[in-house]
Each structure stands twice: as structure tokens, then as C-alpha cells.
Write a protein that binds this DNA or RNA. Structure first.
Lengths: 353, 353
DNA sequence: ACAGTTTAGGCAAACGTTTGCCATGTTCAA
DNA sequence: TTGAACATGGCAAACGTTTGCCTAAACTGT
């Protein structure tokens, strides 16, 4: 017997209690290779007796392959990194939760990184995750950054969510944002809105731009003579930004009777501004959001919003990632959205319908 | 020169583009050990010329130590696992976001695992993370589970957040829940509430129990003759549960004029129930929550709530984790809370104060 | 001049895994 | 009887890192 083998059971010090291949091998009196092969289901390389013995030992001792050793060897790490701009945003939390569940079901572990929408942090995480052998990246609301460009050039598997690849191409999970904007426009017209408006952040992401354009185009198409006011707002987040934009809009021509908020958070910002000025929502000013956070059903009965099925994003992301790693060319996946109408006034007298 | 050395620049195949110690060593014409030592700041072991040459190469080629190799060696992995019950809960998202930022600042990477409050998933993640050499665990709202018990017995570094260690002891980050409940009681009394009530989930966690007890004790202490109604509600989440409990309460004696909702989500559930029944919040029924989600400032001006400083949890967690790993005994950290009063009625006419 | 010390740096083992290749021993067909 | 084919399983390299120990050469003090 090889005298360098450890005694069974007493494992290697700092590795607190984990059973290794060597432990099993020593106890079974076979080599590490044999155990490795059996553990990986290659049963043809050992006698039935050996296979049975080793399998029993694996089960008894609760051996589980160490993913670190595996990754180092160059195999798979079962690690996927998700880069999200901001966990505080309920929409991001919903995407993260659904993706985590889908990845787990597929046998992966998700590492979540909060990039705060900063390209330097995005770069730092891309580097850190690459050297941890992440098998894939899920980038939510990507921003352009040198490391992202480098990753794309190397052909690393990256799935873009919510915002398209700033360098073009690549798999994308999202919705038809132009159509969502158009649906919002239809909704406002149906509600009899005469003087609609739209607010948006000062620096437009592609996502927001598409929503706004879809909205404006549809209005122009259906009501060529209708004037649509447009206003942007400063602020690091959509809440502040919606608030600021609404105040500017009000100061600069009064409140519109209907308004597109291209994200629910902006609608929340507008809601606060309206409260500050005694404007009733939705009676005086009817907002329509895009996102439809789950919380709306509970505490924002005044907000109609285009529901984005964030809870279904996870499966789509994992499917794209799998295709990508299999070498198939993967395109865009646009999931269905639909407008959710809510009609309760601020009076809080719930609409029983 | 050692003929097994790789040529500089052409790295090892599947390891897509990562620079390794061997690459730097080959290019510098020194051994891997020397580069490793210099990279780790051990400058006394090489001549000034060598140090300079290697350092320049490290900077030029952008070498970054591979954490996988490092962990395998038994060193530190810089990986910390956070197990959270439910990312959809804004409070959890806030904890996750702040912890992530604090860990990042301390040079760690956080792996986020969503346990859905299930002990089997909690166990699965504990196992998976242990074998990935996670250096520590942050368990938010822990539930009892075999693997958790095993981890505690092995003395692994675990910090409990929001809910105490079900097996007792251990570092804990949270607030003084009894005091928070008492503060909520004081608030309702100050507002002139005559017939208060409290709702809570059917199965009480320690956290919720303490809040409810603190509330009831304080009411008993200040108004020994006041009857306080109490009602629980079913539901997998606090939204449903608050909704169900409020409806039961209303059916079983009418709406109270003040009510403790031991989490903001329960208050949201109550709000919806009130809307369905035409009850005005807070005029007819004044709720007080605990959590004070950030969104309250924007869309729940009717909810006074005890603010839990989730945004400061991250630093406390990281400090505890560090102490724990340093071998110091670490106790509870109770952060300050304070009640945030909001007075706007459902009329939405904002309170300018 | 010689022993002792310092300086500079290489060797090799170890962490846990996977896998190509080699080495036995057995069976089978011509 | 002699190959060939097959069954069984071990050896060793490789992944990237860290570190205890070793070896030279150069330098120091006497």
C-alpha cells in the first residue's frame, strides 16, 4: 500500500471534514482514478464488485466532488455570475430571484454582483468572475466597458438581460419595448387622455429610449395633431428622477392628464410629487408605468402598468446560456408583456371588480 | 532553462487568456516561487532588480492571482455565502445589497443563495458552499436544519442576521425587536388609538414573536385595562398573510382603529384588505409597520413604520465575520431603530411638513 | 584564509480532480 | 501455441498557487 496515502477518515487538516477522492480510495483499497471514474458514472472500467464497493462507500461517507478541484482541472465550475445594476430595484430583485431558481434547477450556483450601474465595477466583477472560472455571465442592464468588450472578443458566454449588448449582437432576454410603449399610448387614449406627456431620465438607456419612442410614435400615428410634452429629470435613480421630472413638468406648463413613466419607479417618483402638490392620482393625472412590480397589486392601486414577466426571465436566461455554451447561435428572446389596468382612485375605496 | 516552461504569452489552452504565475515567471526568466513571493509582497527574498522586473511584468501583463488555485492550496478563497430566505422581499434585497457592498469593500465576493425559507434548500446550499471553500456564511432568517447544526459544531464562521441562531448563541445582527414593538405601541397611544390590534403570521418566528410581545407588554404596562385584539393569518408570504389576517380581524369584530403589522409587507396586505372593504387608511385604521421599506417614502405615505437600518447591516455583518474568523468571541449587534411617522391620508393631499 | 552569515532564488510537495496512457491478467480464436 | 482482444485498474501529468526547505554564491569578521 502506498505509504503516502492518508488513513481513511482522517482528512487533511484545514479542509474541514470534506471527504475527498483520496479518502474513499484509501478506504476501498483502490486508486484515486478508479474512484473518480466510478463517481463520474464510468462504470465500465472496473469490476462489478469494485463498483459496488466504491459506490457504497461514496454513499456512506457522503462524498461529494469538490468543485474547486474540478474547476482547477479545467472542467466545469457550475458557477454563473450575474451582474445586476442595483438590487434595491424591485425589478432587479425579481430578475435575480427567478434566475437564481432557474440556475439552481439546472445545477448551477449563481454569484450575484451589484455593479451599481458603474462601468468600473462591472469591469472589476467581470475580471474577478473570469478568474474564478465562471462558466457564464448574465449581465442585466449592461453598460459599455473595456472588459466587457474583451469578454465578447474572447467569445465568453454572456447573456444580456433587459438592456441590449452595447457592442451589438449577442443573446438578449427582454420584451418588445417599442410595443410596450405603444400599448401604454393606446391605454391612455382609451382612457380619454387629451394632453399626455412622458418623463424619462436625462441619459437614456436603449431600453428606455425604445419605450419612449414606441409611445410617441403610436401617439403620432393615432393622433397626428396631438401635442405630447416631454420632460427629463436628473437623479441617480428612477425614483428621484421621476420626482424631479414631474416637478419640472408641472412647473413648466402644469400637470398633464396622462403620462408615461417608462419604469414603475419613475411612476412612484411622480406619485410623490403629485402628493406634494395636492394633485390626485389617477383622477387628475393618470400615469401608466412599465414593469408592473408585484407590489403594485398591494399598495399602488392607482398605477396601471405594462407587466414584464420578470419571473419567467430565469428560464429564458438559462436556456440561452445553455444554447450559447453548446455553440449554437442564440438570438433575442422577447417575452410577452401585457398591460395591467388598475382603476382605484386615491380615495382608496377599492374597486371590487 | 527548464524545458517544461511554457513560452511567454501563450497560455494554457482552456484557461482563456488568464495570465498565470508561470507566464510571468517564464517571461522574467525566474521561477514561479519567486514571482509568487513578489506578487504577495514578500520583497525581501529577491534582489531589487528582480523585484522591479517582476513587478513591472505583473503590472504590464495585468496578472491577477487565480483564486481557484489559491483556495485549492488551502489559502483563502475570499468567498462568502449569503443565504437569504426570499429576494422578493424588499427588506432582504436591502440586506443583500448592503452586505454585498461591505464585503466587496473588504475584498470578498458574495455568493447569494435564495433558500425560500426552506430548510432542505438551506442545507443544500450550506453543503455546496462548504465544498466551494466559502470562508464564511451569512444566514438571514435562518431555520433549523441538520446541516446548519453540523456547521455550527464544526465551528464554521456563521453570522446570523435578522433571526437568531435556532440552536442558540453565535453572532447576530439585528435590532431590539421587543423595543421596536414597544415603540410602535407608544406611537399608537400617542395617536389616540383606543382599540388596537395586532396581526401576525400563523407560525411565529422569534423575530416576529419578540416584536409582538414587546408591543403587547408595553400596552399592558401603560393601559392595563385596554383590550388588545390579536389575529393571525395564513399565507406563504407576509403580504398574503397580512391580507388574510386583516380580513379575519374585520370579520371577527370589525376594524380596529390602530394596528401593529410586525412587518411592512403585512401592512401592505392589510392596506389591500382595507381598500377592498372601503376602509380608509390611516383615518379609519392607523397601521404601524416594522421595517420601513425605502419605498414607503414614495408610495406608502399612509404608513408609519419602525425603520430598521438595513443599509447599515452590511458593515456590521462584515465586522462580525472578521472578528469571528480572527477567533474573537462575537456577540449580538443590535442596531438603532427609530419610528418614522407618516401622516398623509389616503386623500393623497401630501402633508407639506 | 577560513568559518559563519546573509542574500537570492530554485525545488518540490500539497490542495482535489480528471484523463490519456500503460501494465497486468484473462479469455478467445485460429 | 501464439497472438489478439478485452477486462481491470494504476500511474502520472495537469490546472495555479503557496511555502518549507535547500543550495549556491557572496559577503563579513577575525
Amino acid at each position: 500500500m502506498n505509504d503516502r496515502r492518508r488513513e481513511p477518515g482522517q482528512s487533511s487538516g484545514q479542509n474541514s471534514g470534506q471527504i475527498s477522492l483520496a479518502d474513499i480510495a484509501a478506504e476501498a483499497g483502490v486508486s484515486v482514478s478508479t474512484v473518480s471514474r466510478i463517481a463520474n458514472g464510468d462504470l465500465g472500467r472496473a469490476s462489478a464488485a469494485t463498483v459496488a464497493k466504491v459506490q457504497k462507500l461514496i454513499a456512506d461517507r457522503g462524498y461529494r466532488p469538490n468543485p474547486i478541484g474540478r474547476s482547477l482541472r479545467g472542467g466545469d465550475s457550475r458557477l454563473v455570475a450575474m451582474l445586476a445594476p442595483n438590487l434595491d430595484n424591485p425589478a432587479m430583485a425579481a430578475i435575480a430571484a427567478s434566475t437564481e431558481a432557474a440556475l439552481r434547477a439546472a445545477g448551477y450556483v449563481m454569484i450575484l454582483c451589484d455593479t451599481h450601474d458603474r462601468s468600473d465595477l462591472q469591469d472589476e466583477y467581470l475580471r474577478a468572475m473570469r478568474s474564478r472560472f465562471a462558466e457564464g455571465f448574465i449581465v442585466v442592464s449592461a453598460v459599455a466597458s473595456p472588459e466587457l468588450e474583451a469578454s465578447l472578443e474572447r467569445g465568453e458566454p454572456i447573456v444580456f438581460v433587459n438592456r441590449r449588448n452595447p457592442y451589438g449582437g449577442g443573446p438578449f432576454i427582454g420584451i418588445d419595448n417599442r410595443q410596450a410603449g405603444a400599448d401604454a399610448a393606446d391605454h391612455l387614449l382609451t382612457c380619454g387622455v387629451r394632453a399626455p406627456a412622458v418623463i424619462h431620465p436625462a441619459d437614456l438607456s436603449s431600453t428606455i429610449r425604445e419605450r419612449v419612442e414606441g409611445f410617441l410614435d403610436r401617439l403620432r400615428e393615432r393622433r397626428p395633431d396631438m401635442a405630447v410634452r416631454r420632460c427629463d429629470g436628473a437623479g441617480t435613480n428612477h425614483l428621484d428622477c421621476g420626482h424631479a421630472a414631474a416637478l419640472r413638468l408641472a412647473a413648466d406648463g402644469g400637470w398633464p392628464d396622462g403620462i408615461l413613466c417608462p419604469s414603475d419607479l419613475m411612476a412612484y417618483g411622480l406619485f410623490r410629487a403629485a402628493g406634494e402638490q395636492g394633485v390626485r392620482i389617477p383622477e387628475d393625472c393618470r400615469p401608466v408605468g412599465i414593469d408592473d412590480n408585484d407590489l403594485n397589486d398591494w399598495i399602488a392601486p392607482w398605477l396601471s402598468s405594462v407587466k414584464i414577466p420578470y419571473h419567467r426571465f430565469g428560464d429564458a436566461v438559462v436556456a440561452s446560456l445553455r444554447d450559447l455554451r453548446a455553440g449554437n447561435s442564440v438570438g433575442e428572446v422577447l417575452l410577452d408583456h401585457r398591460l395591467v389596468r388598475r382603476r382605484s382612485g386615491s380615495s382608496m375605496a377599492g374597486d371590487p371588480a
